[in-house]
C-alpha cells in the first residue's frame, strides 16, 4: 500500500489546541513538512512568540525557545551570530512582528540576518481576544475598534511584505494565503524556498501567511477561509515580493 499522507516527523503527536478553522495548525504542519523534507530537524531552532502560537513548542518536534513579545528577530539574530550552523526560524503573529516588534524585524531584515520568518497575518491580536492589529483591515470591527477601524484615527493596515522587500538585506519575501488546498500547496513551496535561502546564506527570508481566525472574526471556519480569499487578499495581495535568485523579483 502506498503511503500518501502521514504526520510529519517534526510534528509532535499532540492534539492542536487551536480553534477549529484556525490557520496556525495548517501553517505548523507546512513548516514541519518542509523541515522533514529538507532534513533540517537536527539542526533547527524555532522561536515562537507570545500569542496563540506561544504553545507552538508543544507541536514542533524541533528545539524551540520562547521569545519576548516582538523580539523574535533579535533572539534569532543572537542565535545565528553565535552559531551560524544552526537553522533558525521565527514564527510570529501580526501584532508581534508588525506592532511591538517592528524595529527588530526591520533591522534584522536590513542587516540581512540569515534567518527565516514565518509571519502569520490574521489581522487581529488572537490570544488576547481579538483586538486591533497593525494589519486590521480598514472598517474591520475588533474589540478595540468596535465601530470599525477608522483610517483617519487608526491608520491603514500595514503591508509588511511590501515594506521589507526593498531592503537590500532581504533575500526572499512571499505572501501566501491559507484559503484553499491550492493556496496551501503554494504556501508550502514558499516556506521551502525561504529555508533554502537560509541554507544558502542568502540573507533574510520571510513568508507572510494570510491566515483565518474564525473565532475573533466571529465567523464559521468556512466563512473565514472565504474571507481570507476574498477580502484579505484585496488588501494584502499574494505573490513573490522579493527573490534574489530570480532576476525579475530581485528587487
Amino acid at each position: 500500500m502506498k503511503l500518501i499522507y502521514t504526520r510529519p516527523e517534526s510534528l509532535k503527536k499532540a492534539a492542536f489546541h487551536y480553534c477549529p478553522g484556525c490557520g496556525h495548525s495548517v501553517a505548523h504542519r507546512l513548516v514541519c513538512e518542509v523541515i522533514d523534507e529538507m532534513e533540517l530537524r537536527g539542526r533547527t531552532i524555532g522561536i515562537p512568540p507570545p500569542g496563540c502560537s506561544v504553545f507552538a513548542y508543544n507541536y514542533f518536534d524541533v528545539d524551540m525557545a520562547e521569545s519576548a513579545h516582538g523580539r523574535g528577530a533579535a533572539v534569532a539574530t543572537g542565535i545565528k551570530r553565535a552559531c551560524p550552523g544552526i537553522i533558525v526560524f521565527t514564527y510570529q503573529g501580526d501584532g508581534d512582528l508588525a506592532g511591538i516588534g517592528t524595529a527588530e524585524t526591520i533591522h534584522a531584515a536590513n542587516r540581512g540576518e540569515n534567518i527565516t520568518t514565518i509571519f502569520i497575518n490574521n489581522a487581529v491580536y488572537g490570544m488576547t481576544g481579538g483586538q486591533m492589529a497593525p494589519t486590521t483591515l480598514s472598517g474591520m470591527k475588533t474589540t478595540t475598534t468596535p465601530y470599525g477601524r477608522d483610517p483617519a484615527t487608526e491608520g491603514r493596515p500595514m503591508r509588511m511584505s511590501e515594506m521589507l522587500a526593498p531592503l537590500e538585506g532581504v533575500a526572499y519575501i512571499e505572501r501566501v494565503a491559507i484559503s484553499s488546498p491550492a493556496n496551501i500547496r503554494k504556501a508550502k513551496k514558499a516556506i521551502a524556498r525561504a529555508f533554502r535561502m537560509q541554507i544558502d546564506n542568502r540573507g533574510f527570508s520571510m513568508v507572510e501567511i494570510l491566515s483565518p481566525c474564525p473565532t475573533n472574526w466571529k465567523m464559521t471556519p468556512v466563512q473565514s477561509w472565504k474571507w481570507v480569499e476574498e477580502e484579505m487578499t484585496r488588501v494584502f495581495p499574494p505573490g513573490v515580493y522579493k527573490d534574489v535568485t530570480e532576476p525579475e523579483n530581485a528587487g
Partner: peptide, 20 residues
Amino acid sequence: LQAESEVAAINMVYGASLVG
C-alpha cells in the same frame, strides 16, 4: 553587533546565551 535598540541588544544576548 551594534543593535537597533537596547531592547534588541538584550534579546540578542538572550539568543546567543540560548545556544551556549
